[in-house]
Design a protein around this nucleic acid. Structure first.
Lengths: 334, 334
DNA sequence: TTGTAGGCGTTATCAG
DNA sequence: CTGATAACGCCTACAA
């Protein structure tokens, strides 16, 4: 309603110069305490708020941080986004969420748009983006969940170790034939999870690469992959699925073939999203500290932005087994 | 890497004034075609992009649109966000997602921050925000999913009718005792869905308000509510749950009591989110046209912003029954 | 058809 | 301690 008042209005009302107002606003320079009070009073009276756009123009920075995610519909990413949002907001930044569909063209368009808006930095989950592109935009960036390049800071989890642990767990509870529903080959964490799987089963006499099916990190893909696996190899009694979203698909796939989980088939997946608790049966999973890695990535980026740090940090968090109802020890009853 | 070039650099290279560059940039005013070409060449050569911040400062508008959602972890909202994002981006706006926890303080803080950034408009899903607050910020706004006030444009669905239809469906398949897991009382759509439920069952001889339990639109709340209901009234054979997220909770609640869905209990919920297809059993639901309402809200807002329209539009879309596996006609086998 | 210049709201530099 | 004033990059009268 009321026209926005500017720093000049405040100056006039307080009978000082705009420079003085700016000083009390930003707390730099000297200003006598009584004039400071006069200014403060004027600010309050006019309900004055500094204009961020003007500020950004002058500073070349906007107090905005963006998060790129490949798929907002995978519940993993809202959880991650939540963490990044909390941290950035707490530090006085505006948070922008960008959904990229893992499509380089969209990523570039966003980068372009954000650059024009003087965005301070980006946190990026991507398997198509390259270090060259990012550097060509000259925007501070931190990779999250998926490594982009060794000279871009990253926050991830120990995917390979976690995958090994998951598959070993299946062995420990007595599974004899363990298959894998894999994530997209071009996604670094999916590749690591596949390697972890291979680390454990590659030497088994029964093993062949036919025990691996592609699920594309999608519900539907995983359902089909699971059906294919279980049809080809009815003897499969353990399934390691590369993420929880696909884990849900795997359950449905088994169900559609009339195979009971966990009675006939144990399923373990990866991520630890909330959704996994809500399915029937609830998913046993290798849980990432989702909130922690999101918050940490934001922290690193903000530090980089504010201190103008360029040292690249590489941090890897640990995943943790959460036993729920999609797995059961052989020979044990419910 | 390369310093951002400005309109002045382009002008110099093309040997014209900045005004001319601005003209070809924005396509207004007259400019001879050969000089236009010279300018275009210079732009390309320098890889020039106009600075949005400077533009915003001049225009007082930023080409940004924000969406306020109460809970990014409820999959309904990512689906909605996706629609809004697609539409806004397609129209050249930058999309900002704000998670409010349905907390007025956070909403106000966001409004404040966005106002300072000259945001063009907001789409808001809220049950705490009031028309007065919004108007005091003087930012064009459209309410989505939940009505705020009759003088703020809104896009919603026919919640009451949809709820009636859902409950009637339960009756039609033979349910004798139908309970309701309700959404928060202060949320307008939850209130309407409750009314729709009452419309159908209020006159039944068996009915009492004890057949209604609060689920707070959360998974956990719905699980507990369902357990409470089924414990109090073991004769319940139909359950209308106010949204899908809670529908999943209801399934788990029934399961925890050893009650089989849909054999002993039919459950229908509301929303039509993807998640509902993935549960076991898959949820029967009254599906909203989620993408459509999100896109439509964006459309209305953009029109309002660009045409400086102030006419308030009220649009209500229809929901549609989707039969899946959480309901079954009495006496029928699978 | 093109150029000049003032202003959008801030901040920082430089005198006082 | 305080006040002018020149940027930041762009757009649009107004002049030519």
């Amino acid at each position: 309603m009321a026209e926005m008042s500017t720093i000049r209005d405040v100056a006039k009302l307080a009978e000082v110069s705009v420079a003085t107002v700016s000083r009390v606003l930003n707390g730099n320079g000297y200003v006598r305490s009584d004039t400071k009070e006069r200014v403060a009073a004027a600010i309050k009276q006019l309900n004055y708020r500094p204009n961020d756009v003007a500020r950004s123009l002058f500073k070349g920075r906007s107090k905005m941080i963006a998060l790129f995610v490949p798929d907002i519909m995978n519940p993993f990413f809202p959880e991650l986004a939540r963490a990044v949002e909390d941290m950035t907001k707490q530090q006085g930044f505006t948070f922008v969420l960008c959904n990229t569909d893992d499509d380089l063209t969209k990523e570039m368009a966003y980068l372009d748009a954000l650059k024009q808006k003087s965005v301070d930095g980006i946190i990026i989950v991507s398997s198509t983006m390259t270090a060259e592109y990012i550097e060509s935009f000259d925007i501070p960036a931190v990779a999250l969940d998926r490594i982009i390049h060794s000279n871009i800071s990253s926050v991830t989890v120990n995917n390979r170790e976690g995958a090994k642990e998951a598959v070993q767990y299946l062995k420990d509870i007595g599974c004899q034939r363990i298959a894998h529903v894999a994530g997209p080959e071009h996604v670094s964490n999916a590749k690591q999870r596949l390697k972890g799987y291979l680390d454990v089963v590659e030497k088994e006499e029964w093993f062949s690469s036919a025990f691996i099916e592609q699920g594309e990190y999608h519900f539907e893909g995983a359902k089909k992959a699971t059906e294919a696996l279980l049809t080809k190899f009815p003897e499969i009694d353990g399934l390691f699925v590369a993420n929880d979203l696909m884990g849900v698909g795997a359950i449905k796939g088994a169900e559609s073939l009339g195979i009971s989980v966990p009675d006939q088939l144990s399923i373990i997946s990866f991520d630890g999203i909330k959704l996994g608790e809500t399915t029937s049966p609830a998913l046993t999973t290798m849980a990432q500290p989702i909130y922690k890695i999101g918050a940490r990535a934001a922290e690193i980026l903000i530090h980089q932005v504010e201190q103008n740090e360029s040292k690249t940090l590489v941090e890897e968090f640990s995943v943790k087994l959460i036993e729920r109802d999609s797995t059961r020890k052989k020979g044990e009853n419910q």
